[in-house]
């Protein structure tokens, strides 16, 4: 029963987020700060993980191809497909649910515990618009970070391939160009936009409506990570079935 209540409360929160907008001059600053905190601040970890996971995908693929009839360029092809279709949009979003999601939940939850949200409400400010809306807008740039992740994943694969001696550079490049379908990029970015919205709103929901003290802020962050991940996995399945199925 509480699950249904929470789902209803989540959608009411989203509706409330768009009411009584904060002054643009203030909102602009909040959005820029959230872009810095949520996007720019995540680029390092996205780049690091993408590069090395791209390399691992390449090594795993190369090691599992022992049939001489299978062309070597398949390593590049498999890396490209894995990185663009699943690794960059989905796997990175699960990692971001931990990094960005727990940051959002704990920062909003701490504001709840220390009555800063009450202070906003007493002043007549729509606290949901003030706190959640700029994060949602900032995360519209999330696909930009994912694009960097895609590029670095393929680059990492190339480095592993060439320096590990699994294939030649020419074969790898042929592989990443083979049967390229631009719809796959479109599909990946549609998923990324949906995940960005989930990454902004579910952790905000858990932070905003938390009750208790510092211990509960920690618990809310963990719960937010779990539910954000569940939502991403489920939506990944639904979107994949809708768009590629």
């Amino acid at each position: 029963m509480s699950y249904i209540h929470n789902i209803g409360a989540y959608f009411l929160m989203i509706a409330e987020m768009f009411r009584k907008p904060t002054k643009w001059s203030v909102m602009k600053t909040l959005i820029l700060k959230d872009i810095d905190d949520l996007i720019i601040g995540s680029l390092g970890i996205i780049a690091f993980i993408s590069f090395f996971v791209g390399g691992v995908i390449t090594i795993q693929t190369a090691l599992n191809i022992d049939n001489p009839l299978i062309p070597k360029y398949l390593v590049g092809f498999a890396t490209r497909q894995s990185v663009i279709l699943e690794f960059a949009p989905t796997f990175t979003s699960i990692i971001m649910a931990g990094k960005v999601g727990s940051f959002i939940t704990s920062s909003i939850g701490t504001m709840r515990v220390t009555e800063q949200i009450d202070a906003l409400e007493v002043m007549g400010i729509n606290s949901l618009n003030y706190l959640v809306f700029p994060k949602t807008i900032a995360l519209l740039l999330y696909p930009f970070a994912i694009a960097i992740g895609m590029f670095l994943g393929i680059l990492g694969g190339m480095a592993a391939c060439v320096f590990g001696g699994y294939s030649t550079l020419a074969d790898y490049i042929i592989g990443i160009q083979t049967d390229f379908d631009t719809f796959h990029i479109f599909y990946a970015f549609i998923k990324t936009f949906v995940f960005a919205f989930i990454l902004a709103t579910i952790p905000s929901f858990h932070g905003y409506y938390m009750k208790g003290g510092a211990l509960e802020v920690g618990k809310a962050s963990t719960t937010a990570f779990v539910w954000t991940s569940v939502a991403i996995i489920l939506l990944n399945y639904i979107l994949t079935d809708m768009m590629l199925g």
């Binding site: 220390t114 009555e115 009450d118 202070a119 007549g124």
Partner: peptide, 17 residues
């Protein structure tokens, strides 16, 4: 508009950190 005419001092100060 009414709330804009209200000032509030919270128990824990509630300053934006």
């Amino acid at each position: 508009n009414l709330r804009a005419e209200i000032g509030m001092v919270f128990q824990g100060s509630a300053l934006f950190d």
